[in-house]
Each structure stands twice: as C-alpha cells, then as structure tokens.
Design a protein around this nucleic acid. Sequence first.
DNA 1: ACATCATTCAATTAATTTATTGAATGTAAC
DNA 2: GTTACATTCAATAAATTAATTGAATGATGT
Lengths: 219, 219
Amino acid sequence: MSIGPKQALYAAFASVARALGSQHRLEIVEHLAQGERGVESLAERVGLSIANASQHLQHLRRAGLVASRRDGKYVLYRLADESVLGLTAAISGVAERHLAEVDRIRRSYFDDRDGMEPVSREELLRRTREGLVTVLDVRPLDEFEAGHLPGAVNIPLSELEARLAELDPDQEIVAYCRGPWCVLSFEAVAALRARGFKVRRLEDGLPEWRAAGLPVEGA
Amino acid sequence: MSIGPKQALYAAFASVARALGSQHRLEIVEHLAQGERGVESLAERVGLSIANASQHLQHLRRAGLVASRRDGKYVLYRLADESVLGLTAAISGVAERHLAEVDRIRRSYFDDRDGMEPVSREELLRRTREGLVTVLDVRPLDEFEAGHLPGAVNIPLSELEARLAELDPDQEIVAYCRGPWCVLSFEAVAALRARGFKVRRLEDGLPEWRAAGLPVEGA
DNA sequence: ACATCATTCAATTAATTTATTGAATGTAAC
DNA sequence: GTTACATTCAATAAATTAATTGAATGATGT
C-alpha cells in the first residue's frame, strides 16, 4: 500500500517540528540567530560534546532549518533563512500564552516587580534619537562584533561587575542580548539595578531587531 | 544541581514543538482548525483508535495547543487560539522552502501543469463582487455547516461526480477546502477540469480566510 | 604527497514516545 | 439510583529517538 500525498506531506512537516522539539536544538538555533558559528564553539556554548552537537546540527539541516558552508578547516552553520526565527517566535508565543509552566518560570526567575517591563523597539529608537540612552549589549564580544545595535556599548555579562566604571550613572541604560528569552539581559538589569543604575531591558534581541529591518552595525 | 531558567524555558518550548512533531497530531490540528470536534469523529477522520486519538489530544492539550469543553456526554476540542494556525503555517512554510521532499511531493501529486496556480483571497473577493464566480466548498457537510465562505456552494468531494449537474458549466469555479495543503480541492480541480469545467483552487482554506479577518457565513 | 586536525559517520546503549488494550471515570437519560 | 455510553487513565509492548564513543573522512598547509 502506497502512502498518499497527504501522509507524505504531514510526515515532512512533522520532521520540521520534531527538529525543534529538543531543548538543545532550540538553544543551538538561538545561537545561530546571532550569526554563523562553527561546531566546536557551538558545542562549547550549549554544553554538548562536539560529536553530539554535530549530530544535532545534522538533524537541523535535514529538517531544512540550518545551512552550512566551509571556510578553511571550519564548517560554519547558519539559519536557513529568517523565517526560522519566525517559527521559533511562533513556538515561544504559543508556549507563553498557554503553558502555565512558562508563566511560573517567568514569575520565579524573571521577577518583574521593579518595573521590569521591557522597552519596545520603537521606544528605543525614539530615545536614542534624542541621545538620552545608553544601549548596552551584554553578549560575548564575538557575537557583538558579528552585528549589534547602532551605537551600542558591549560589556559581556561576565565582565559587567568589573567594568561598571564605563557606564554613566546618570544616563538611562537599555540592555539587550540574544532574544526575548535570553537570560543575559535579565541578569544584567538585576545587577545594575542593585547598584543604583536606571536600566531596562529591550523587549527582544538582536535577531528580532535585524528581522524587523532596522539597521545593524558592525556586520 | 538545579536547572536554570533557561533550561526550563527551552524544555517548555521544546514540548510545544514536539507536540506538533507527529503526522497524526498535525492532521488533528488541521481538522480542529475547521471547528470544534469530538474525540470519536476526530479519531474516525484521522484513522486512529479512539483511545489513541484521545492520547494525542491530551498531548496537544498539555502543550497548550488545544483546549476542550464538555457538551453533554461529549468533550469537544478546539485550537487554543488562532496563533496555533500561525505556528503550523510557519512550519509548513519552512518545509516548503527548504525540504526537497516537499517539492518532490508537490511535483508528483499536485501536478500544476495546467495552470494549477491558485487564486488569492484578494482576487477571489474581487471576482465574487462582480458575480463572476462560483465558490465551491468540497469539505464534508458538517465542516461546511460549521462555517464557510460567503455564498459558497457545498459539494463534498466524495459526492462531486454524482452532483455535477448542480454546477454551471459556463461560470468559473473556485474550489477550496481545509487549508493550503488539503488534498480535497486539488482533487476536485483535477476532476472538474477533466470534465471541461473552468476551475481553480483558492490559495488556502477556510481557517486562513477566517484568520485574515474576512467574513464567514453559517458559523 | 604527507601530516594535522576539525568534522562527520557508524554502532551501541539508554531513554522517550507510540500504539494498544482493558479498566475506571463521569455525565446523561431513564 | 441505576444504566448506558463517551472519554480518559494505566499498563504494557513496540518503535523511535537521543547520547556516547571511537573510527573514518576530507580539507588545509607545509
């Protein structure tokens, strides 16, 4: 018995969904949204062995979600196109609206008592035009160099405590990182607030900024 | 060692993706996009045992993709909200663009030699205002009754051959069914073309029409 | 051409997920 | 209250998928 077109199509669609049905692969996708990356550095950041990370990348590639190219001895992976970002946003959007678990996590970890409500892209654009705001990128240096918001200052979260002097205590700060659920900017806001800085988070990260067609510097 | 918020969040997001990572569950979602449905009739249409369909529905509910309510002795399931349709569209969009398999299926089954290019919603709206077109809904009667395009005629695909007399051979026909990948309208177009009718497919189905905010009749 | 080394493949084991069955639950009708 | 019946739960076996390891591949640079 031959399978009909409907079964074959749904099998193909399901393979795309299954490819994103893994914690590790979602995290890999978030990192690739920042820019191209090799297997080794991805493996390190996601906390997987190289062989294991390679497997997951193959899986993502078979599902059409990532593409790769060789550069010298390295193979660099990237997202297949910007619609992959839209797909992950759709997933987290459904999760955010309908999973009690997500709400619980937000409440317990991303405590938003002290005005943790994010700044929208539009608002940030207005404020930067008026020169009223320091835009702070708390991602690692290499991600910053691969592209960042115009005029942004880079202080990776891990170096934040040591480099407080670089920030003007009198100006408002807007921090951002990899995406709407990236923890770096949450922690940066908490740390800077504790030291008296006036700081808020951008509602999402660099990939969404770029996807919205806004200008990116240093790419 | 406690897991961080990042791991917990990604686990939640992955569970949403995994819930759609099954042929059967994707098909269930397509049916639910037409309107509320009970376990038994869903099981029958998707070709699963009742207990198995119930399991899949629980899985979808845990992932926040469907909701349910009781009506008498029946439990009726529905999509959690219209963003679920956007999520499945994002999945099929990626698959369509990047999976060679999908292209192959389209070529071999949905042969578009004879001008099979679909009619857009906008074009259909224009043509119906001019009264130039018969809108044909080829879904089963109960789905038609749960909501259909304004002025549409319902002839389920299974009855099409027997009810050809109801169609005006001189007027152009636009056929639609459950969604962009629903096979019913493809087959209806092929069958009607073979009999000399001038017929094309709508680019997608009723759920997308409704999601676009266009008027729906009989709901 | 050879040595080096990042990456992928292949094979094994462990872990999850699926389908299936029969029993349990809960609502409606009598 | 009891019966009938749709649905869900629980338990099992079958199937699929994930992680891990060591070997193979293939491009680079000398």
